[in-house]
C-alpha cells in the first residue's frame, strides 16, 4: 500500500505492507539510524519522532503514520544543538543507541526546557545504553538545556 507522510521535513510517499513495522520501512529508505534491537519496544534504539513525540519504530505499524510528520536523526542534519551537546559531553560510546537518546532528548526539551534530574531519568527510562554512558548523557541534556555541566 502507499503511505504518504512527511519524512524528515519532506512530503514523501512510500510503499509498505499493512503489517510492516515503521522500522523496516524506514531502514529500506536508507535511514540506518533506526536500529532493530529488542523487537519489543523496551530499548529505544529504533526511536523515531512522530509529530514530535517519541515512538518505537519496531512497534509502530507503518500505515499508522499516514499523514504524520516522522523525524529520524538523519533529519536533524547534524547541526542540532542536542547533537552538539552529546558530542561536547561525550555522551555516547558505541553509538548504536545514540540516535534514540538524541531524539528522546529533543522531545523532552521541547516539552520541558529545564528538566530536573528526576524528569531526565524518567524521560530516558525506556532508552537502554549497554555501554553505560548514562552519566554523560544526562550531562548532554543539561548542556542542551543551557545548564553548566555538573557531576551527578
Amino acid at each position: 500500500m502507499k503511505l504518504a507522510l512527511e519524512l524528515n521535513g519532506r512530503p514523501t510517499e512510500l510503499e509498505c505492507e499493512p503489517d510492516e513495522m515503521l522500522l523496516e520501512v524506514l531502514r529500506r529508505e536508507g535511514l540506518g539510524s533506526v536500529r532493530a534491537t529488542c523487537g519489543i519496544g523496551v530499548c529505544g534504539a529504533c526511536t523515531v519522532l512522530v509529530d514530535g513525540e517519541p515512538l518505537s519504530g519496531c512497534l509502530t505499524l507503518a500505515p499508522k503514520v499516514e499523514g504524520r510528520e516522522v523525524t529520524t536523526v538523519e533529519g536533524l542534519a547534524g547541526a542540532d544543538p542536542v547533537q552538539r551537546a552529546f558530542i561536547e559531553a561525550h555522551g555516547f560510546q558505541c553509538g548504536w543507541c545514540t540516535p534514540g537518546f538524541v531524539l528522546t532528548a529533543k522531545a523532552l526539551l521541547a516539552e520541558n526546557p529545564q528538566p530536573s534530574e528526576a524528569e531526565i531519568a524518567e524521560a530516558f527510562g525506556g532508552n537502554l545504553c549497554r555501554c553505560g554512558s548514562y552519566v554523560k548523557i544526562v550531562d548532554a541534556v543539561r548542556r542542551a538545556a543551557g545548564e553548566p555541566a555538573g557531576a551527578r
Binding site: 540506518g32 532493530a36 538523519e74 536533524l76 547541526a79 547533537q83 558530542i87 545514540t98 540516535p99
Partner: peptide, 17 residues
C-alpha cells in the same frame, strides 16, 4: 570535520553490510 557519525546516526555496523 563533520559531526561524529555515531551522533549523526551515520555509523554503520555489520547489520548494515
Amino acid at each position: 570535520m563533520g559531526i561524529d557519525p555515531r551522533v549523526a546516526g551515520a555509523q554503520r555496523y555489520s547489520v548494515d553490510l
